[in-house]
Structure formats: C-alpha cells, structure tokens
Design a protein around this nucleic acid. Structure first.
Lengths: 159, 159
DNA sequence: CACAATCGTTAGTCGTCCGAACGGTTCGTT
DNA sequence: AACGAACCGTTCGGACGACTAACGATTGTG
C-alpha cells in the first residue's frame, strides 16, 4: 500500500457542521493567540467592549449583554480587576450589585485587543476576495440570527 | 433615551470570527444533542466512520486519520469497546499496537449516527436556500483548506 | 548493540458553555 | 408592614474538544 493509504478524504469532511466547527477552531485559535500575546482571552475582550459600549453596569447586566454566563463572570471580572483594567464598586442604590466600570488602562487594553482582532479577521479570511467575504459574513449572520432567535434569547421582556 | 438601553448591537457581533464561532456553537450543540440521544459524542462518530472507511487499524493510525489526539483515543476507544461497538485486539506482528475493528453493532450505531447527523445538517442550514447552502459550504471549504494546510498538517513526510 | 522512533497509556491544562445551589437583597402584593 | 417571588453575586462542578508532558514497552536502524 505504498500509495493507497495516504489519502484520507473522510466522508464527514464535507458536512457543513464539520466545516463550521473546524473552521471555527482555526478562527478561535487565531484570535486566542492574538489575545494571549497581551495576556487576555475572549471573555476579557467581550467584557471590555461591552463596558465601553454600554457604560458601567452590574455583573448580571454585563453578562446578559455580552452573552457570558453569570457563573463565569466572577472569574473574568476578577482577572480584569486584578490587572486594574476594570473597577468593581458596590452599587449604593442596590446593595446586591457590583458596578463594573472601565479604567483608562482598560480602554488602552481594549484598543490593543481590537487591533489584534482586526489582524485576526484578515488572517482568517485571507483566501477570500472582498465580495466573497461579504457574502460569507452575510450567510453566517443569517444562520446565527436564525438559531439565536430560536434558542438563545430569553432576555426579551416580551411585553 | 428612555429606550436606548434596550438595544445591544455589540460591535463585535459582525466580526467574522464571532459569527463563525457562535454559529459553530449552535452547530455543535445541534449535533451533540442528536448524538447524545443515542449515547454518543463527536469522537465516537469520527472513530466509527473512519473505521468503516479505512478498515481495522491501530489507535495511532486511527487518530491521525480522524484528527483525534492520541491522548484522547484511549478514552474514546474504551467507551466504544465497552459498548461493544468496536473491538480491540493486539497486533501479532507488532506488539506495541492494538488493532481496532468495527463490530456489527458498531456499524448499526454508525448508521444511526449518520441519520442523526443528516437531520442536524438540515436544521443547521434551515434558513438557507439550496444555492446558498452550496455557496456557504464552498466558502467554508476554501477557508478550512487554507488554514489546515498552513498549520494542521504535520503528517506530511515532506520527504 | 545502542539509540531513535513509535505505540499505548495516564494524568494533567485550557477555553467556552452550562447547571445547581446558596446567602443576601430588593420588590410587588397583599 | 410583612411575605414571598424574583434577582444578584458567588462557588462548585461537569461536558466537550483540543492539547502537552511524561513514561514503559516495543520496534527498527545506524
């Protein structure tokens, strides 16, 4: 079998779910490496970005907006607070809450992460032409929208 | 802005890497749920499919062909062997190796998993037209190909 | 023969996602 | 005013996929 054993077409390799999850792994790896080069990971970026976008908020609110599970917020906020990228202060008007806010250093870090992120996108989409990139993200958006709408949005007060 | 706090467009939500990983999560969830309904997970399917495709082989060879890390093969094969979907026998010609082979029950299970998988694909791509599905998988294939070619293929003997 | 490479195995890590539980706090109703 | 429901932060743990390090046993090769 000098030559026959080499090829491994593997029939599942053309399945959308396979293509999707594997490509996502590469994407994740690219971004994670970029982030870790400045000592951060995905949750940190999401948190910082959400904070800048919506302003100071409680952990629960941040979690909902950034899609991070409440259970994981504690550690993520701790890590950010340890590096003083974020500040945790009690809410005087509701003693259950901590109000998380972005520090100047946090904002700088966010700029760094955004730079890394942008580079990552480019590396990720390298083999695609601008038009293809657009179609790709458009299709992805439709898919994601469809599925989050069906399962992932229990926040609507539906009223 | 009594109403401005509701919306959370979140600027990262249009990034390809985000769309990709999130959509992949949904895909993974769909497939995992389908698999777990017959007591299996991704590794099991990959192993069974590879076995059927390439015939009996050592764990290391199987791992290479199915993209499963050697360290994770032990557990996966154990789980399959416990359910008698697979057989582990010593290789007489090389006592380091175990030869893994598919049982009749394993083949039946594989059929089940394939059925589940196909249903999952359909659910995943539900919002897309047939043409869109094709373009989508084509773009994904190009991306995945590009990235695995660059990083994921240390098997080449590059002789 | 001695050394390098391979095989199976064990035991960990990491990141993302998720569920269960609990004490403390606030709010809506009565 | 009081009570129960709902919410907040927190801790613990688990699933899954991917990955690293190390080790004994075996093999093949210089």
């Amino acid at each position: 079998m000098p030559t026959s054993a080499e090829k491994t077409p593997a029939r599942w390799e053309s399945l959308p779910s396979w293509l999707l999850t594997q490509t996502a792994n590469h994407a994740h790896r690219l971004v994670a490496e970029a982030f870790s080069s400045v000592g951060a990971r995905g949750y940190h970026y999401r948190l910082l970005a959400t904070l800048e976008e919506c302003g100071p908020a409680s952990q629960a609110a941040l979690g909902r907006r950034s899609g991070i599970h409440l259970s994981d917020m504690v550690a993520a906020v701790n890590e950010l607070a340890d590096r003083e990228l974020v500040e945790r202060a009690p809410d005087p008007s509701d003693r259950r809450r901590n109000i998380i806010s972005l520090t100047a250093a946090g904002k700088r870090q966010l700029r760094q992460l955004e730079k890394k992120l942008a580079a990552g996108q480019d590396e990720l989409l390298a083999p695609l032409s601008p038009e293809e990139r657009q179609r790709f993200t458009e299709l992805l958006s439709r898919l994601l929208d469809h599925h989050t709408r069906r399962t992932g949005t229990p926040d609507e007060p539906w009223r």
